[in-house]
């Protein structure tokens, strides 16, 4: 019984992935999403849907940036059929920072370093099986205090 159910689900996911594929297989850089000044607009422009919060999307990023110009971030997921991973810095002038298109051979984990002008929420978005999942974290950019 369980096996059957899993197979059916997997089949449905594959179908929906195929249905969604044309939109996700970006043939060119999504310039309008990159120039959007609002995070939600950039995400809507890029994916045409709003993300669901998911614990299966994992983001490693410092709580406090050592240097706002170089903030290391790693996004990974245990979701299957991952098509893309994107990073959005909500308070940046143009929030969309990066889009990574993966392939069926990809391990769904990418690392990159981003600029943050000020304290901001950072969102990681994973497009998998035609659905959009996300996680977010606030990252503080500070002038620094004094050591103990």
């Amino acid at each position: 019984m369980k096996v059957h159910r899993r197979l059916v689900l997997k089949g449905m996911l594959a179908l929906s992935a195929i249905a969604a594929w044309p939109r996700l297989l970006l043939a060119a850089r999504p310039d309008s999403a990159f120039s959007a000044s609002d995070a939600d607009k950039a995400i809507a422009d890029l994916f045409g849907q709003t993300p669901l919060d998911s614990e299966q999307v994992k983001m490693k990023i410092p709580d406090i940036a050592e240097n706002g110009a170089v903030v290391p971030v790693t996004v990974s997921t245990d979701l299957e059929n991952v098509e893309s991973i994107s990073i959005v810095v909500v308070n940046n002038p143009t929030p969309l920072a990066a889009v990574f298109l993966l392939t069926p051979r990809s391990i769904p984990s990418v690392s990159v370093r981003i600029k943050m002008g000020q304290t901001s929420q950072v969102r990681a978005l994973v497009n998998a099986g035609g659905n959009l999942y996300s996680t977010s974290k606030d990252v503080k950019v500070t002038i620094g205090g004094c050591g103990g």
């Binding site: 999504p30 170089v70 990066a98 298109l101 993966l102 392939t103 051979r105 981003i114 600029k115």
Partner: peptide, 18 residues
């Protein structure tokens, strides 16, 4: 095996791993 589109918020001397 991977394509990336970036905006200007990727740090100077970009680093990427995949």
């Amino acid at each position: 095996v991977m394509t990336a589109y970036w905006g200007p918020a990727v740090s100077r001397n970009p680093y990427v791993s995949f």
